[in-house]
Design a binder for these strands. Structure first.
Lengths: 120, 120
DNA sequence: CAAGCTACCTTGCCACGCAAGCTACCTTGT
DNA sequence: ACAAGGTAGCTTGCGTGGCAAGGTAGCTTG
């Protein structure tokens, strides 16, 4: 019994969230994970593969910064492609969310186009 | 290159959409698929495993209806558990969508709580 | 020197949408 | 009579990607 529909929902939206955060200011994985953990319940084990993917896709680039207390941090910065991806995915999210809302809100038998006959 | 973030987004929301449609009126898989294909781009190959899962989970029950033209249709009807799931998942979706919107809308450096120091 | 935090990363698992393909029913055209 | 095409059901193989759990290493504090 899956039950966790939001586990599935997260997929596809996490990248968007990370892009959004990085667009505001550079950040490092551990920090981003903590942030999104509060916001939408992302687990820490999720962020590292994600960041790697984003780097592979050329959406972010990295630089190391020594930390006062703890190991040095790998900061991520958006690239131009990253900024483009952010725009694209934001639009996609909006479209998608609107489509879902439309399905949920549809006031019963509104889309009736081809379905003139009710066999019952 | 994945690119299709909405493929991922769909996961978790499709069940909700199907529950919503069935709550309005009983339907059969082929029809629901066509509906949601227009709405959020669901593929036909997706609906059958989904319906089976929902039946296994006791969210729907089925009955056969002869069709005027074509093979007989397996109609799905929501069970009480299905109606409960609908409510629960609607709430989950709302929560999730709001959380995402919050991340997207966050007006830069608002969540600053523990992050007093900028090492740069 | 052992805890314990920060921060990095990996592995194995599992869920689930999708494309493609298959079967079978029924109508329509030639 | 038989091929074509739409309706309706279903399956298989694949890929994506989050998650839990585990592992390393730097640094601080008792």
């Amino acid at each position: 019994m899956p039950e966790h529909i939001d586990t599935q929902l997260k997929k596809g939206v996490l990248t968007l969230c990370v892009l959004t955060l990085l667009n505001r200011r550079d950040g490092y994985a551990y920090d981003i994970a903590a942030d999104l953990s509060k916001a939408i319940g992302m687990g820490e084990g999720t962020i590292y593969p994600l960041m790697r993917r984003m780097q592979t896709d050329g959406l972010v680039e990295t630089y190391l910064v020594e930390s006062a207390a703890g190991p040095s941090r790998k900061y991520y910065r958006l690239t131009a492609a990253g900024r483009r991806a952010l725009e694209a995915q934001t639009a996609e999210w909006r479209t998608f969310a609107d489509a879902v809302e439309a399905v949920l809100a549809e006031p019963a038998a509104a889309t009736a186009e081809t379905k003139g006959e009710l066999t019952q």
